[in-house]
């Protein structure tokens, strides 16, 4: 890596913000480049000093003030306990209830269509009919031939 790339990485060298491989490459470069080294030292020093100043200038509450702020917060409407009080199985029960509902609905709505004898709707319809007819129409002549069957699909003779 050249100096330009290294200097772009320098601000993030003070913590675990960049991967180890890059840190090693930057460190190797810093060993042999005094200009970049100085730049790195500048970052370290400015950061250390700023942290130090932040610590020195840190503020704290006077107890009286802190109590007043806490009391002010407590005057607000208290949060509802029911939302938080932990019930680990809450979700599981909700899912179980949903599953039961789905099963019951399935039994009530879908099942009756299968209760009837036979498996298909076509068969049921055929079973209910006394006479079944089948019509063939000739496309060339327009001649119609109609067959009539009984329940057992036996050809029924119709006397005219």
């Amino acid at each position: 890596m050249n100096c330009k790339k290294i200097r772009r990485l320098l601000p993030l060298m003070m913590g675990p913000e960049i991967p180890h491989a890059k840190v090693a490459a930057v460190n190797a470069h810093l060993e042999k480049c005094p200009e970049c080294r100085r730049e790195y030292d500048a970052y370290v020093l400015s950061l250390e000093k700023t942290k130090e100043w932040l610590k020195e200038d840190s503020k704290d509450w006077e107890d009286r003030e802190w109590q007043a702020v806490l009391q002010g917060a407590k005057k607000e409407k208290a949060p509802k306990a029911s939302h938080l009080v932990p019930w680990p199985f809450k979700k599981i029960w909700a899912y179980a209830l949903m599953a039961v509902c789905v099963v019951v609905l399935t039994l009530l709505v879908v099942r009756p269509s299968f209760i009837e004898e036979g498996t298909g709707a076509g068969e049921r319809m055929l079973a209910q009919q006394e006479v079944i007819s089948m019509t063939l129409v000739s496309q060339e002549t327009g001649l119609k031939i109609v067959w009539f069957f009984n329940k057992n699909f036996e050809l029924k003779e119709i006397e005219e």
């Binding site: 601000p11 993030l12 003070m14 913000e17 030292d41 020093l45 400015s46 700023t50």
Partner: peptide
């Protein structure tokens, strides 16, 4: 976060130079 942190540290380093306007090599 990384981008903002990098920019922040760069700016702080520049401003720090105004407080201690000498070479860092000498500070160390």
């Amino acid at each position: 976060v990384r981008t903002h942190l990098s920019r922040a540290r760069q700016k702080i380093r520049t401003q720090f130079e105004k407080i201690y306007p000498f070479r860092y090599g000498e500070v160390k």
